[in-house]
Amino acid sequence: MYLKTLELSSGSILLMVREEYTTATEGARLERPEDQYFYKIGIYGWRKRCLYLFVLLLLVILVVNLALTIWILKVMWFFPTGMGHLLVTKDGLRLEGESEFLFPLYVREIRSRMDSSLLLQSTQNVTVNARNSEGEVTGRLKVGPQMVEVQNQQFQINSKDGKPLFTADEKEVAVGTGRLRVTGPEGALFEHSAETPLVQADPFQELRLESPTRSLSMNAPRGVHIKARAGNIEALSQMDIRLGSSDGMLVLDTETVRLPKLTQGTGDPAGISQGLYEICACPDGKLYLSVAAVGTTCQENSHVCL
């Protein structure tokens, strides 16, 4: 008969094997000495204490990690709908308050709240780029400390109803508003030609068209109208002033026309004409005065034209 007994104790395993032998002789029993073998399986001594210490250390690390995770979630304001001022909505992301971006931001649309304005601020400059599908820059808006730069094929400013107010490209600059007002004391400076249907000064202010070093030319296919409703019209030039009409005539419609510095011819004495003169014209258009008589005296004073 074989009998095996297994006993478990705290921290050790005791295995005891017992063997008994009996004879088949009737009335006699022979017992052999019992041999017991004990095998100890387990961790004892300093190894056991190190294991407990390691398990305790892992438990402490687990508690610290859990506490740090909860603290980070609380500090960063993690919520099911977002993180801190960043909220995730069905329309996209929503930021409350001021936000700082350290790297490029790629979005399709940026909108402010209904009751506040949108502010983009930088210590250097603010640059907005538009790129095509290949990543090439097709448009750029750069706001720097010294200059606002727009790089594009065309720059256009529209009104609320979509009407173009200001358009600029490589060929021309167009102002679509009804009136362009220049309020600076020095007026407006045009390096080349300017095309407009009307040039008008503010009420009680004088209008001056001036070219300091070159000539001033006003051309119109159907005439140039110069009108001063209250005041004088003065045309000053260092050299010549020319009033011409390619198809038509020049009309001076006024009560008095004064030419105080016309050259006077010396044909007849002034006493004969009693201070009356006639205006004569040279072939080149030069005007001069000639003493009035019964007949014309322009031919007699034609030496003025030489």
Rank of each mutant, 00 (worst) to 15 (best):
T123W: 01
P104W: 10
N152V: 15
V88M: 07
S117K: 05
D91Q: 09
K74S: 15
P80K: 11
R131D: 04
L87P: 00
V107T: 14
G135H: 06
I110T: 01
R108M: 14
E149D: 10
R113P: 00
P80F: 15
R131A: 04
P80G: 00
T138P: 01
R94M: 07
M76V: 06
V88E: 03
G135T: 07
F103R: 04
E149A: 10
L105K: 05
F79I: 04
M83P: 00
P145S: 14
M83A: 15
R111Q: 11
P145I: 05
A130R: 07
K74W: 14
M147W: 14
R131Y: 06
V75N: 08
Q151R: 14
E98C: 04
V150M: 14
Q121L: 15
R94P: 00
E109S: 12
W77N: 09
A130T: 11
V143F: 14
S116L: 01
V150S: 14
Q124P: 03
G139S: 12
E98D: 09
P104C: 15
S99I: 15
G144Q: 09
E109I: 04
A130F: 10
T127N: 14
D115S: 14
V107S: 12
D91A: 09
L105N: 03
S122Q: 02
V143K: 12
N129H: 11
M114T: 11
P145H: 10
S122T: 13
T123E: 05
E100V: 05
S116P: 01
Q151T: 13
E149N: 13
V75I: 12
E134V: 05
V75H: 13
W77P: 04
L87R: 06
G135E: 06
R113A: 02
R111V: 01
M114G: 05
L86T: 04
N132H: 07
R113D: 01
W77Q: 09
F103A: 08
A130V: 15
W77L: 08
H85A: 02
T123M: 03
M76C: 12
L119Y: 03
T123K: 07
E109Y: 03
K74F: 07
E96P: 01
L87G: 01
S112T: 11
I110Y: 05
T127R: 06
V143I: 13
R113E: 00
G135L: 05
Q146F: 08
D91V: 05
L87F: 02
E98S: 05
L93I: 00
F78M: 09
Q124I: 10
S117E: 09
T123D: 07
K74I: 09
Q121H: 13
Q121R: 13
E100D: 00
S133D: 04
G144H: 11
Q121N: 12
K142D: 06
E136M: 08
L118N: 00
P104E: 13
Q146W: 06
F103T: 09
G82V: 08
G144V: 14
S117V: 06
M147D: 12
L105C: 14
R113V: 00
P104I: 12
Q146E: 08
P104Q: 10
S133I: 01
P80E: 12
F103D: 06
S117Y: 07
H85Q: 05
E96W: 01
V148D: 00
E136I: 02
P80A: 09
T123V: 11
T127Q: 11
P80L: 12
L95Y: 13
L95P: 00
R111F: 04
T89S: 08
P145F: 08
H85L: 04
Q151M: 14
F103E: 10
